[in-house]
Design a protein around this nucleic acid. Structure first.
Lengths: 233, 233
DNA sequence: ACCTGAACACCGTTCAAGT
DNA sequence: ACCTGAACACCGTTCAAGT
């Protein structure tokens, strides 16, 4: 019996695209026209191929969007990440990481929806940059003496505030500031309106509130490492 | 010259629908089949009318979705809101409001996206229940002695954490817990895995972290009312 | 293996036409 | 004034067919 050698058929017309090619083209498209323009048809056109060819590399469109999101996050954090790691004081290092995330949403407000999704995406979706950042924070918390349950709780509280508040601040872009100002006015809180009278005020208060909350939470988390367990528990 | 009296033409076939009718039908649809089923076609079918009739009452579909969201939020907060207001201690009252929001996202995880949108929606979209809740928190902060800038900053920090963390915790439902567990594992943080080994652990840590963060922020905000301005500023 | 092209089942939205 | 029904311009997705 003669063994037939199976030769894999080869596509000859042009070089085959990799996952990376699609992600790279997606990043370019988003940077030029925003996330709203990232559709299967427009990406195909931008790459000079048919839109349905994408499904050979990404079985679901959502996975491509998340990969593009992570790539953009990576690009924007790349410059700052070395600076974050080099901070010697663990508390300041954590704060630097938190501020970096907010700077991210400030630069790319339409990234907000995907950022929330990314935090709970299946592991099939690679997010190496975000994973590295969270590991930096976790290591810093260990440096502060946090272990086990308190480490997990402390990290979760910080992530919830950082990603959540950053997302909320820029949700509704580009009308988020004026709409929020309108809400503050219609709610009729005279006490609030003293400090918030323009969209610039809204923007400033948002940023101050983020820094205030970040400091408060880092201090509280650090303090939890020094707490002794209540024997009555 | 004879003045012709203009009589408004009257639609005779059946009673005209109001905005409320559409919202009410939308709430029912969401409660039975989830937010994913809330489309113009399905709502029209559920009401026994053509889908395009909706645009006579809501010029944009998004407005109907936000109105439905507020109605659902209202229904779920209705029971608890009286209890929140009746809390005598202002800090406990604020905490009760924060916990109420989290209970909301816990009961309706697919409401998360719209909740973020609602916070920055134009005032044309009515959100009376949410406005009332935020007013309760603001009044409580005033009771704690906060005024002007500090009031605005304190409120914003609390809202950012509450809505943001609640949204992040349930983003990706219904696979959010398993996916998050997978991420914790793949990130390879051995220190974290001591405390987080099952989806039940993830759920428990999320809730503990929310309560921890809420307490820490309320304390910090309350403390900011007693701080004296640094003369070196 | 990789890509094309037609086709499918949706979606929000518009608009002339009915009552 | 309110609703219908056809139509439009999209969207993600499938699948047989090409090379």
């Amino acid at each position: 019996m003669i063994r037939r050698v199976e030769v894999a058929p080869c596509y000859v017309r042009g070089v085959a695209r990799s996952r990376e090619d699609f992600v790279q083209a997606g990043v370019l498209l988003v940077q030029e026209q925003g996330f709203g323009a990232l559709t299967s048809r427009s990406l195909g056109e931008a790459m000079g191929i048919h839109s349905t060819a994408i499904y050979r590399h990404f079985p679901q469109w959502d996975q491509l969007v998340l990969a593009v999101t992570d790539a953009i996050v990576g690009g924007l954090l790349a410059e700052g990440s070395a600076a974050i790691i080099s901070v010697s004081d663990p508390r300041e290092r954590i704060l630097a990481a938190m501020v970096a995330v907010r700077r991210l949403t400030h630069a790319h407000p339409d990234l907000v929806d995907n950022l929330l999704r990314l935090a709970a995406a299946p592991i099939t979706t690679a997010t190496p940059v975000i994973d590295a950042l969270s590991r930096t924070v976790i290591d810093s918390l260990r440096e502060l003496g946090l272990r086990g349950e308190r480490l997990a709780v402390g990290y979760q509280a910080l992530e919830g505030f950082t990603v959540g508040a950053a997302a909320l601040d820029f949700s509704g872009h580009p009308h988020h500031l004026e709409n929020r100002l309108g809400r503050r006015r219609s709610a009729g809180n005279a006490a609030m309106l003293e400090a918030v009278q323009s969209t610039d005020d809204v923007d400033r208060v948002n940023e101050t509130a983020f820094l205030f909350g970040a400091h408060a939470l880092v201090e509280a988390v650090a303090a939890s490492a020094r707490e002794v367990c209540d024997p009555s528990d």
